[in-house]
Design a protein around this nucleic acid. Structure first.
Lengths: 206, 206
DNA sequence: GACAGCCGTGAACCATCATTCATATTATGT
DNA sequence: ACATAATATGAATGATGGTTCACGGCTGTC
C-alpha cells in the first residue's frame, strides 16, 4: 500500500506552490490585506482548490508561518548547538541569522513580523506553535548567556535581557536590507552585529 | 471673532476622546481588526459622529499615528539637541525613550509598529508624514554618531548602521515590557540599553 | 472501454464592515 | 419662548472578501 502515489505527490506539489504564492503576498501586505482570490490567482489555481488543501485562510497562514519559523529555528538551533565556546556559538548564531536574512528576504520579513513585532501586539501573532518554537531559540540563547557569565566570558547582566538585546541588534539591519538588498552581504551584516554587540562602541574608558 | 467658542472646545474634546478610544483598540488589535463601530462604542458616540470629525477610517488612523509619532519625535529630538557631548546626548536619548516606553505602553506599541515593524512591510505603514518624522530622528542619530566618530568617541563604523543598531537595542526590551509592565522601570531599561550598546558585553580582549 | 472516485473550478452565498444620510436632539441668538 | 443652525444618531446601503458546493473533466481500476 504505497502511500506515495503520483496523486499524493502532485497534491503536495500544489500545496507547496500555494504556500509559495501566499508567502510573497502575506510578507508584503500582511494577513488581512491579502485575499484568498489573490493567492489563488498568483498560484494559478481556483479559490476552491485552496480550500481542498487548507481548512481555511487562517490554517493556510498558520501552515506558512510554521514552515517559516521551523526553517529558521532549525538553522539557528543547529548553530547554537555546534561545538565551541559560548562566544563561538553565539557568533555562529549571528552569522547564520544574517545569512538566512540575506538569502530569504520574504521569509525573514515573516519571521521578524511573527517574532519581534508580534510580541508587542499579541493579536497579530496568529500562531501558538510558531511562538513556542521561537521561545525555544530565546531560551537557548538565554542559557548560553547564563553559562557564559558563569565562565566569566560576559558581563553580569540578566541573561534574558542579553538574549533580547542580541535579538534586537541582529534584527536591526533587516529594514535596511529590505530596502536595498544589494547593498548588504551576510558577512558584513554579521560582522557589524558582532562588533556592536560583543565589541564596544564607545572608546572612552568606563 | 473669538474662534475658541464653547462649540469648538467641545468638538476638540470629543475628537480627543475618540482618538483615545482608537489608540487602545488599534494598538491592541491593529488597523484591520478594529471596526469603526467598536471605536464608536468605546468612545460612547455613534458611528456617524466619527465621520463628522474624521474624513474616514484611514484619516482617523493617520491622525492617531501622527499624534503618537509627533509626541515621541518631540521628546526624542529634544533629548538629542540638549547640551553636552555626543555621548551625553545619546544617553539622554536612551533615557527619554525608555521613559516614554514605560509610561505610555500603548503609544509605544504604535510607535514601534509604525517605525520598526512597518519598515519591513511598507504596505503596513499607512502614513507618509509619520514616516518622515521618524526618519528625522534617525538622521539626527546618524549625524551624532558621525560627529562622535570624528571626535574619536566611537569606533569607526558606518554611522547609519550605528543608528540602526541603537534603535534595535532600545526597542529590544519593549516586548518584555508589554508582557510584564510591572517588572520594568525606565531607569533599569535605560541602564541596560546603555550597558549593552556603549559598554562591552564580552570580557575577552578583542 | 466503462465506471468510480478524486480534483479543480468559479459562480453564488453570506457575513462583515466602512460609509452615508434622513431624522432627532441640542445649542445659540433674538 | 421661538426660530435656526449646528450636532449627534443609527438604520440602511454597498462593497469586499471568506467560504461553499454543484458541476465537468481526469485518473486509475476492473
Amino acid at each position: 500500500m504505497g502511500k506515495v502515489t503520483r496523486r499524493e505527490r502532485e497534491r503536495q506539489r500544489h500545496r507547496r506552490e500555494i504556500l509559495a504564492a501566499a508567502q510573497d503576498l502575506f510578507s508584503r501586505k500582511g494577513f488581512d490585506r491579502t485575499s484568498m482570490a489573490e493567492i489563488a490567482d498568483r498560484a494559478e489555481f481556483a479559490v476552491g482548490t485552496l480550500y481542498k488543501l487548507f481548512e481555511d485562510k487562517q490554517a493556510l497562514y498558520r501552515a506558512l508561518i510554521l514552515d517559516t519559523v521551523r526553517e529558521f529555528e532549525a538553522a539557528l538551533s543547529a548553530a547554537l548547538n555546534a561545538r565551541g565556546s559560548e562566544i563561538e556559538k553565539l557568533e555562529r548564531y549571528i552569522e547564520t541569522k544574517a545569512d538566512l536574512f540575506v538569502r530569504h528576504i520574504p521569509t525573514a520579513r515573516l519571521y521578524f513580523g511573527q517574532t519581534a513585532a508580534a510580541q508587542c501586539a499579541p493579536t497579530v501573532g496568529l500562531d501558538r506553535a510558531a511562538r513556542a518554537l521561537y521561545e525555544k531559540v530565546l531560551d537557548r540563547l538565554e542559557s548560553l548567556f547564563r553559562a557564559g557569565i558563569r565562565r566569566m566570558l560576559f558581563v553580569e547582566v540578566e541573561p534574558k535581557m542579553l538574549a533580547l538585546g542580541l535579538e534586537g541588534i541582529s534584527n536591526a539591519f533587516l529594514p535596511a536590507l529590505v530596502e536595498r538588498p544589494d547593498d548588504f552581504s551576510a558577512d558584513e551584516m554579521a560582522a557589524l552585529t558582532k562588533k556592536i554587540f560583543f565589541g564596544r562602541v564607545s572608546l572612552k574608558a568606563e
